[in-house]
Structure formats: C-alpha cells, structure tokens
Simulated assay, not measured.
Amino acid sequence: MRPSVLKYVRVRDYLRSLVTHELDVGDAIPSERLLCERFGVSRMTVRQAVDALVVEGLLEREQGRGTFVAPAKLDLEVRLSSFGEEMARRGMVASSRVIAAEVVPATPDVADALDLLPGESVHHLHRVRYADGEPMAIEQSWVPQLLVPGLFDDGPPASIYGELRAVGLEPDWGEDTVAASEVDAQGAAMLGLRAGAAVLRLARRTFAGQTACVYSRSSYRADRYVLWVPLRAPRRPLTPRRSAGDGAVPDGPVERGVDVTT
C-alpha cells in the first residue's frame, strides 16, 4: 500500500472509530487543522477521508457550519408490517401527516397492479410518514373500494394493514421493486431535503392469498435508510415475473424484496 493511501486510511479509520464509540449524533468532528497536525498529513488527505465517511452516511456536511455525525440509518428489510409496528420495533414513535384521503378512479397503472379495470373506484391515501417527529418517507397507497368500503368512514386509518385484517383480509405476501432516484422540489419540501437529494423509490403489491389488496409507492430518504436484503437459496426455481405495471398476477410469495411499511 502506498504511503499516501496508508495515511488516508489511518485518518478515515480514526474518524470511523470516533463516530462509532465516542461522539453522538450531531457532534462535530475535529477540525481539518487538528487532524492534519495529529496525523502529519495534508488537508487534501483529510478531506478524502472525510468524503469517504460522508458517502458511507456516517458523517454529514452542513454548508458554512462544518461536518457532523449523521443520524444512524435504518435498515429496510423483508417484512410485511405497518409503519407504526416497524417504528415501534425500533423503539421510535410513528406519526403521519395526511396529504389526501379520497376515493378516486383507478388509473391504468394502479388498476393493473390491483387486478382491476381502469376507472374502478379505489381508496387513495397520500401521507408523509414520521419517526420521532422526523419525516422519513412519502407514501401513496391504493386499496380497491370493494374490499374495504368504509376505509375512510372514521377518517384516514392509522394502518391500512390493520383495516384489512379487520375485514378478514390478512396481508401475507407481497412483491417489491426498488429504484434509486432524486426527489423533486415538492417531495424535498415534505421530507426536509434539498431538491435533487437521493431517495429510494419503492413500489409494492400486497396480497391476501391471491387477492391484490394494496398497491403502494413510497419515497424513502436515502440519508436515513440503507437497503438490507437477506439471501437464501430458492426452494424451487423462480420464474421471471413481469413488473407490477403490466398486469402480471403472481402465483405466490416472491422470495425477494425489502420492507415498505403500510
């Protein structure tokens, strides 16, 4: 290993240990000058080490203020649970801000995902999801009106999955698609991000048996989530599946995906 690379690694590993064992979220890291003096390196070497930890999500820069310990990222994992249940599992308090709760005609893409005809009535719930008061995701969900006619009778429900269980529909499997994207100005305002910041866009079809009961699209803050997917050998050959938008009706649970709580 070249000496210049070794110096960069020493600074990076020192900062990583400092963040992990000594500093708290929001604490500032030592200044570039102090790090240069401690390790006998140039400012460029220190900046390279800090840049690496910013990319990892351990540190975050605030223009004009400095570099600070970033909040720990939450893992997205395979799980069919409500947002409230998932946050409670992590010891966090969940809440929501409702943007829209209405019955609307299903657009062609929503109709395909829910095995409906375009124009059939669906419940549409648009929310910003919070954990401990911090915005985590923007979520839109669609539920066939025929499955739960009174879904909005008492106002927007805290948990769509809970309402489905109340009418005898137990969400027991689903399939997800995941893509990296950039948030637009409107979404950035909702999530407290700058326009163009990275988000994870997740689309899910949720099933109760063979009934497609929820279709959701969510944008999760990439600075607060890391994708975590457990892998295992398939018990049977997996056949290629078409995307949710082209009307495919799966035969059963898909052995892949990440958590999109609803």
Score class of each variant (00 low, 15 high):
residue 62 E to F: 08
residue 47 R to T: 08
residue 92 M to F: 10
residue 43 R to Y: 02
residue 66 G to T: 11
residue 102 E to I: 11
residue 244 A to Y: 12
residue 32 E to G: 06
residue 161 Y to W: 04
residue 92 M to N: 01
residue 42 S to T: 15
residue 71 P to E: 06
residue 82 S to I: 02
residue 219 S to R: 08
residue 126 H to A: 11
residue 115 D to E: 14
residue 92 M to A: 12
residue 159 S to D: 14
residue 193 L to F: 07
residue 125 L to S: 05
residue 101 A to P: 07
residue 249 V to Q: 13
residue 187 G to Q: 09
residue 97 R to T: 12
residue 207 F to D: 05
residue 73 K to N: 00
residue 258 V to K: 04
residue 27 D to Q: 02
residue 10 R to T: 05
residue 18 L to F: 08
residue 231 L to W: 12
residue 182 E to A: 15
residue 69 V to F: 01
residue 196 G to D: 07
residue 257 G to L: 09
residue 164 L to A: 05
residue 223 D to C: 11
residue 132 D to I: 01
residue 261 T to Y: 09
residue 78 V to N: 14
residue 57 G to P: 03
residue 260 V to T: 07
residue 156 P to W: 06
residue 91 G to Q: 11
residue 75 D to Q: 07
residue 214 V to N: 07
residue 83 F to Y: 15
residue 80 L to H: 15
residue 204 R to A: 12
residue 255 E to G: 08
residue 41 V to D: 05
residue 30 P to I: 05
residue 210 Q to M: 09
residue 243 S to V: 11
residue 21 H to E: 14
residue 71 P to K: 08
residue 41 V to G: 12
residue 204 R to C: 08
residue 46 V to E: 06
residue 9 V to K: 14
residue 75 D to V: 10
residue 233 A to L: 14
residue 116 L to W: 02
residue 11 V to F: 06
residue 36 C to T: 15
residue 34 L to V: 12
residue 71 P to S: 03
residue 133 G to L: 12
residue 94 A to Y: 09
residue 100 A to H: 11
residue 93 V to K: 13
residue 49 A to N: 08
residue 234 P to S: 03
residue 178 V to I: 14
residue 192 G to Q: 02
residue 48 Q to M: 12
residue 253 P to R: 12
residue 32 E to H: 11
residue 205 R to F: 04
residue 165 R to L: 05
residue 174 G to V: 04
residue 82 S to K: 09
residue 46 V to I: 07
residue 62 E to T: 10
residue 19 V to T: 10
residue 133 G to F: 07
residue 216 S to W: 03
residue 51 D to W: 05
residue 191 L to A: 06
residue 76 L to V: 03
residue 41 V to M: 05
residue 105 P to C: 02
residue 100 A to Y: 00
residue 176 D to L: 00
residue 99 I to V: 14
residue 81 S to G: 12
residue 224 R to C: 03
residue 28 A to W: 04
residue 76 L to A: 12
residue 235 R to P: 00
residue 164 L to M: 11
residue 45 T to N: 13
residue 234 P to D: 07
residue 233 A to Q: 10
residue 102 E to H: 11
residue 86 E to N: 08
residue 124 H to P: 00
residue 43 R to A: 15
residue 200 L to D: 03
residue 222 A to V: 00
residue 54 V to E: 15
residue 45 T to K: 08
residue 110 V to D: 03
residue 24 D to N: 14
residue 43 R to P: 04
residue 208 A to K: 00
residue 63 Q to R: 15
residue 262 T to L: 14
residue 77 E to G: 02
residue 33 R to A: 14
residue 69 V to H: 01
residue 262 T to W: 06
residue 67 T to F: 05
residue 136 M to K: 11
residue 43 R to L: 07
residue 42 S to I: 02
residue 154 D to I: 01
residue 158 A to I: 07
residue 3 P to K: 15
residue 125 L to I: 13
residue 167 V to P: 14
residue 15 L to V: 08
residue 45 T to G: 04
residue 27 D to T: 00
residue 2 R to C: 01
residue 132 D to V: 01
residue 55 V to N: 06
residue 184 D to I: 03
residue 156 P to F: 03
residue 52 A to D: 14
residue 31 S to L: 02
residue 174 G to R: 06
residue 59 L to N: 10
residue 100 A to L: 09
residue 172 D to I: 11
residue 234 P to N: 08
residue 242 R to W: 07
